[in-house]
Protein backbone atom coordinates (compact mmCIF):
# COMPACT_ATOMS: atom_id res chain seq x y z
CA UNK A 1 0.00 0.00 0.00
CA UNK A 2 2.87 2.32 0.81
CA UNK A 3 4.21 1.75 -2.69
CA UNK A 4 0.83 2.52 -4.22
CA UNK A 5 0.53 5.73 -2.21
CA UNK A 6 3.99 6.82 -3.20
CA UNK A 7 3.39 6.02 -6.89
CA UNK A 8 0.16 8.00 -7.02
CA UNK A 9 2.13 11.03 -5.88
CA UNK A 10 5.09 10.55 -8.18
CA UNK A 11 3.50 9.36 -11.44
CA UNK A 12 1.98 11.73 -13.96
CA UNK A 13 -1.79 11.82 -14.05
CA UNK A 14 -1.98 8.53 -12.16
CA UNK A 15 -5.13 6.77 -11.08
CA UNK A 16 -5.84 3.78 -8.86
CA UNK A 17 -7.40 0.78 -10.54
CA UNK A 18 -9.34 -1.62 -8.30
CA UNK A 19 -12.08 -3.80 -9.82
CA UNK A 20 -12.07 -1.79 -13.02
CA UNK A 21 -15.82 -1.47 -13.26
CA UNK A 22 -16.07 2.29 -13.38
CA UNK A 23 -12.73 3.43 -14.75
CA UNK A 24 -12.27 0.79 -17.45
CA UNK A 25 -15.66 1.36 -19.13
CA UNK A 26 -14.92 5.08 -19.16
CA UNK A 27 -11.51 4.38 -20.72
CA UNK A 28 -13.05 2.09 -23.32
CA UNK A 29 -15.36 4.89 -24.35
CA UNK A 30 -12.36 7.23 -24.33
CA UNK A 31 -14.04 9.46 -21.80
CA UNK A 32 -11.04 8.99 -19.54
CA UNK A 33 -7.36 8.46 -20.37
CA UNK A 34 -5.17 8.37 -17.25
CA UNK A 35 -1.43 8.69 -17.78
CA UNK A 36 -0.65 5.85 -15.38
CA UNK A 37 -2.79 3.14 -13.84
CA UNK A 38 -1.79 1.83 -10.44
CA UNK A 39 -3.28 -1.60 -9.99
CA UNK A 40 -4.12 -1.98 -6.31
CA UNK A 41 -6.18 -5.11 -6.94
CA UNK A 42 -3.70 -7.46 -5.26
CA UNK A 43 -3.04 -5.54 -2.05
CA UNK A 44 -4.41 -8.14 0.31
CA UNK A 45 -4.53 -5.77 3.29
CA UNK A 46 -7.21 -3.77 1.55
CA UNK A 47 -9.51 -6.72 1.00
CA UNK A 48 -12.06 -8.41 3.23
CA UNK A 49 -14.31 -7.70 6.19
CA UNK A 50 -13.24 -7.46 9.83
CA UNK A 51 -16.34 -7.78 11.98
CA UNK A 52 -16.34 -5.68 15.13
CA UNK A 53 -17.55 -6.92 18.45
CA UNK A 54 -19.93 -5.14 20.75
CA UNK A 55 -20.17 -1.49 19.78
CA UNK A 56 -17.24 -1.66 17.41
CA UNK A 57 -17.78 -0.96 13.75
CA UNK A 58 -17.49 -3.60 11.08
CA UNK A 59 -14.54 -2.66 8.89
CA UNK A 60 -14.65 -3.31 5.16
CA UNK A 61 -11.54 -3.22 3.03
CA UNK A 62 -12.06 -1.12 -0.11
CA UNK A 63 -11.16 -4.03 -2.40
CA UNK A 64 -13.99 -6.14 -1.02
CA UNK A 65 -16.24 -7.10 -3.89
CA UNK A 66 -19.96 -6.51 -4.05
CA UNK A 67 -20.43 -10.29 -4.15
CA UNK A 68 -18.56 -10.69 -0.86
CA UNK A 69 -20.65 -7.99 0.77
CA UNK A 70 -23.85 -9.48 -0.62
CA UNK A 71 -23.14 -12.73 1.20
CA UNK A 72 -21.78 -11.15 4.41
CA UNK A 73 -23.20 -10.48 7.88
CA UNK A 74 -22.90 -6.71 7.52
CA UNK A 75 -25.85 -4.37 8.06
CA UNK A 76 -28.87 -5.72 6.17
CA UNK A 77 -29.28 -2.69 3.93
CA UNK A 78 -25.70 -2.97 2.73
CA UNK A 79 -26.04 -6.70 2.04
CA UNK A 80 -29.29 -6.04 0.20
CA UNK A 81 -27.91 -3.19 -1.89
CA UNK A 82 -24.71 -5.03 -2.84
CA UNK A 83 -26.76 -8.00 -4.03
CA UNK A 84 -28.70 -5.74 -6.37
CA UNK A 85 -25.71 -4.20 -8.12
CA UNK A 86 -25.33 -5.05 -11.82
CA UNK A 87 -25.10 -8.75 -12.47
CA UNK A 88 -22.99 -11.60 -11.03
CA UNK A 89 -19.98 -10.70 -13.20
CA UNK A 90 -20.07 -7.10 -12.04
CA UNK A 91 -20.54 -8.11 -8.41
CA UNK A 92 -17.60 -10.50 -8.62
CA UNK A 93 -15.25 -7.78 -9.88
CA UNK A 94 -16.60 -4.47 -8.68
CA UNK A 95 -15.38 -3.21 -5.30
CA UNK A 96 -16.91 -1.04 -2.63
CA UNK A 97 -13.91 1.29 -2.57
CA UNK A 98 -13.95 1.87 -6.31
CA UNK A 99 -17.68 2.33 -6.21
CA UNK A 100 -17.70 5.08 -3.61
CA UNK A 101 -14.63 6.82 -5.00
CA UNK A 102 -16.41 7.01 -8.36
CA UNK A 103 -19.54 8.46 -6.67
CA UNK A 104 -22.03 7.84 -9.44
CA UNK A 105 -25.25 9.54 -8.39
CA UNK A 106 -27.24 6.45 -9.39
CA UNK A 107 -25.03 4.12 -7.41
CA UNK A 108 -26.56 2.30 -4.45
CA UNK A 109 -23.74 2.18 -1.94
CA UNK A 110 -23.35 5.94 -1.32
CA UNK A 111 -27.02 6.08 -0.30
CA UNK A 112 -26.66 3.08 1.97
CA UNK A 113 -23.41 4.20 3.63
CA UNK A 114 -24.91 7.65 4.23
CA UNK A 115 -27.99 6.18 5.89
CA UNK A 116 -25.98 3.72 7.95
CA UNK A 117 -23.67 6.46 9.21
CA UNK A 118 -20.55 4.84 7.87
CA UNK A 119 -17.11 6.36 8.24
CA UNK A 120 -14.63 6.31 5.39
CA UNK A 121 -10.96 6.29 6.16
CA UNK A 122 -8.70 7.78 3.52
CA UNK A 123 -4.92 7.91 3.43
CA UNK A 124 -2.11 9.42 1.44
CA UNK A 125 1.59 8.68 1.80
CA UNK A 126 1.93 10.90 4.85
CA UNK A 127 -1.39 11.08 6.67
CA UNK A 128 -4.79 9.54 7.25
CA UNK A 129 -8.21 10.95 8.08
CA UNK A 130 -11.75 9.73 8.70
CA UNK A 131 -14.69 11.19 6.81
CA UNK A 132 -18.37 10.69 7.61
CA UNK A 133 -20.10 9.15 4.60
CA UNK A 134 -22.52 12.03 4.66
CA UNK A 135 -19.74 14.50 3.92
CA UNK A 136 -17.68 12.15 1.75
CA UNK A 137 -20.06 12.53 -1.19
CA UNK A 138 -20.01 16.13 -2.32
CA UNK A 139 -21.61 16.20 -5.76
CA UNK A 140 -22.12 14.53 -9.09
CA UNK A 141 -19.14 12.13 -9.37
CA UNK A 142 -17.45 14.23 -6.69
CA UNK A 143 -16.10 13.28 -3.28
CA UNK A 144 -13.99 14.88 -0.60
CA UNK A 145 -11.12 12.53 -1.48
CA UNK A 146 -8.05 14.70 -1.74
CA UNK A 147 -5.30 14.45 -4.30
CA UNK A 148 -3.30 11.24 -3.94
CA UNK A 149 -5.67 9.87 -1.31
CA UNK A 150 -6.90 6.31 -1.27
CA UNK A 151 -9.94 4.89 0.51
CA UNK A 152 -8.50 2.35 2.95
CA UNK A 153 -11.36 1.37 5.26
CA UNK A 154 -15.13 1.67 5.21
CA UNK A 155 -16.37 1.40 8.78
CA UNK A 156 -20.02 0.53 9.20
CA UNK A 157 -21.87 0.46 12.54
CA UNK A 158 -23.01 -2.95 13.67
CA UNK A 159 -26.71 -3.55 13.94
CA UNK A 160 -27.53 -4.51 17.50
CA UNK A 161 -30.81 -5.84 18.80
CA UNK A 162 -33.69 -3.48 18.03
CA UNK A 163 -31.91 -1.98 15.04
CA UNK A 164 -32.63 -2.82 11.44
CA UNK A 165 -31.93 -1.41 8.02
CA UNK A 166 -33.21 -1.84 4.49
CA UNK A 167 -32.66 -0.56 1.00
CA UNK A 168 -35.41 -0.19 -1.62
CA UNK A 169 -34.80 0.86 -5.18
CA UNK A 170 -36.29 1.15 -8.61
CA UNK A 171 -33.89 -0.63 -10.92
CA UNK A 172 -32.89 1.02 -14.16
CA UNK A 173 -33.77 -1.97 -16.35
CA UNK A 174 -30.68 -1.47 -18.52
CA UNK A 175 -27.88 -0.73 -16.07
CA UNK A 176 -29.50 -1.92 -12.83
CA UNK A 177 -28.38 1.34 -11.22
CA UNK A 178 -30.99 3.06 -9.05
CA UNK A 179 -33.46 5.29 -10.85
CA UNK A 180 -34.30 6.15 -7.27
CA UNK A 181 -33.09 4.39 -4.15
CA UNK A 182 -33.88 4.80 -0.47
CA UNK A 183 -32.13 3.43 2.56
CA UNK A 184 -33.38 3.46 6.12
CA UNK A 185 -31.77 2.44 9.39
CA UNK A 186 -33.98 2.50 12.47
CA UNK A 187 -33.89 1.53 16.11
CA UNK A 188 -37.14 0.52 17.74
CA UNK A 189 -37.90 0.79 21.43
CA UNK A 190 -41.19 -0.71 22.52
CA UNK A 191 -42.74 0.03 19.16
CA UNK A 192 -41.40 3.56 19.09
CA UNK A 193 -38.80 4.67 16.58
CA UNK A 194 -36.08 5.98 18.84
CA UNK A 195 -33.59 6.60 16.05
CA UNK A 196 -34.02 6.88 12.30
CA UNK A 197 -31.46 7.57 9.62
CA UNK A 198 -32.70 7.86 6.06
CA UNK A 199 -30.93 8.67 2.81
CA UNK A 200 -31.96 8.68 -0.81
CA UNK A 201 -30.09 8.56 -4.10
CA UNK A 202 -30.63 8.29 -7.81
CA UNK A 203 -32.66 11.47 -8.01
CA UNK A 204 -30.13 13.85 -6.51
CA UNK A 205 -26.57 14.65 -7.64
CA UNK A 206 -25.27 12.79 -4.59
CA UNK A 207 -26.62 10.62 -1.82
CA UNK A 208 -28.80 12.84 0.33
CA UNK A 209 -29.58 12.50 4.03
CA UNK A 210 -33.27 13.01 4.76
CA UNK A 211 -33.45 14.98 8.01
CA UNK A 212 -37.12 15.90 7.64
CA UNK A 213 -38.17 12.30 7.26
CA UNK A 214 -36.09 11.32 10.26
CA UNK A 215 -37.49 14.16 12.38
CA UNK A 216 -41.07 13.29 11.44
CA UNK A 217 -40.54 9.72 12.55
CA UNK A 218 -38.29 9.79 15.59
CA UNK A 219 -40.20 9.41 18.81
CA UNK A 220 -43.26 8.07 17.02
CA UNK A 221 -44.67 4.65 16.29
CA UNK A 222 -44.30 2.94 12.95
CA UNK A 223 -47.76 4.25 12.06
CA UNK A 224 -46.03 7.52 11.30
CA UNK A 225 -43.96 6.00 8.47
CA UNK A 226 -46.35 6.91 5.69
CA UNK A 227 -46.60 10.54 6.72
CA UNK A 228 -42.89 10.82 7.45
CA UNK A 229 -41.98 9.39 4.03
CA UNK A 230 -43.88 12.19 2.33
CA UNK A 231 -41.45 14.63 3.97
CA UNK A 232 -38.70 13.46 1.63
CA UNK A 233 -39.72 16.14 -0.86
CA UNK A 234 -38.37 18.81 1.46
CA UNK A 235 -35.07 16.94 1.90
CA UNK A 236 -34.07 16.47 -1.73
CA UNK A 237 -33.99 20.09 -2.85
CA UNK A 238 -34.63 21.43 -6.32
CA UNK A 239 -31.77 19.83 -8.21
CA UNK A 240 -33.57 16.65 -9.31
CA UNK A 241 -31.91 14.53 -11.98
CA UNK A 242 -33.68 13.83 -15.23
CA UNK A 243 -32.68 11.58 -18.12
CA UNK A 244 -34.18 9.29 -20.75
CA UNK A 245 -34.99 6.75 -18.06
CA UNK A 246 -37.08 8.95 -15.81
CA UNK A 247 -38.26 12.52 -15.55
CA UNK A 248 -37.68 14.60 -12.44
CA UNK A 249 -41.45 14.58 -11.94
CA UNK A 250 -41.50 10.81 -11.82
CA UNK A 251 -38.49 10.53 -9.55
CA UNK A 252 -40.02 13.01 -7.13
CA UNK A 253 -43.37 11.28 -7.47
CA UNK A 254 -42.16 7.84 -6.45
CA UNK A 255 -39.36 8.57 -4.00
CA UNK A 256 -41.77 8.69 -1.01
CA UNK A 257 -42.91 5.19 -1.95
CA UNK A 258 -39.36 3.84 -1.79
CA UNK A 259 -38.60 5.69 1.43
CA UNK A 260 -41.71 4.17 2.94
CA UNK A 261 -40.81 0.69 1.73
CA UNK A 262 -37.29 1.01 3.10
CA UNK A 263 -38.63 2.24 6.44
CA UNK A 264 -41.23 -0.50 6.67
CA UNK A 265 -38.67 -3.20 5.91
CA UNK A 266 -36.12 -1.69 8.31
CA UNK A 267 -38.71 -1.55 11.09
CA UNK A 268 -39.73 -5.12 10.43
CA UNK A 269 -36.10 -6.16 10.76
CA UNK A 270 -35.61 -4.04 13.86
CA UNK A 271 -38.62 -5.72 15.41
CA UNK A 272 -36.87 -9.01 14.68
Amino acid sequence: MAEALSLIASEDDARFLAGGHSLVPAMKLRLDAPGTLIDIGRIEGLRGIAYGSGDENDCIGPLTTHATIASSNLASALVEAAGGIGDPQVRNRGTIGGNIAHADPASDLPTVLTALGATIRVENSSSARNIEAESFFTGLFETSLGENELVTVIAVPREGAGTGSAYAKLFNPASRYAVVGACASVTLNNGVVSRARVAVGGLTPMATRCGSVEAALEGRSTDAINGASAQVASDVGDDILEDIHASAEYRLGVIPVYVERALQAACARAAG
Binding site: L29, D87, S175, I244
Partner: peptide
Protein backbone atom coordinates in the same frame (compact mmCIF):
# COMPACT_ATOMS: atom_id res chain seq x y z
CA UNK B 1 -28.80 7.87 -30.51
CA UNK B 2 -29.58 8.30 -26.82
CA UNK B 3 -29.56 4.58 -26.08
CA UNK B 4 -26.16 3.76 -27.51
CA UNK B 5 -24.94 1.35 -24.85
CA UNK B 6 -26.07 -1.45 -22.59
CA UNK B 7 -26.24 1.10 -19.79
CA UNK B 8 -29.16 2.79 -21.53
CA UNK B 9 -30.70 0.17 -23.81
CA UNK B 10 -32.54 -2.35 -21.65
CA UNK B 11 -32.33 -5.96 -22.81
CA UNK B 12 -34.49 -8.67 -21.26
CA UNK B 13 -32.93 -10.41 -18.26
Amino acid sequence: LLTGSMMDYAMPR
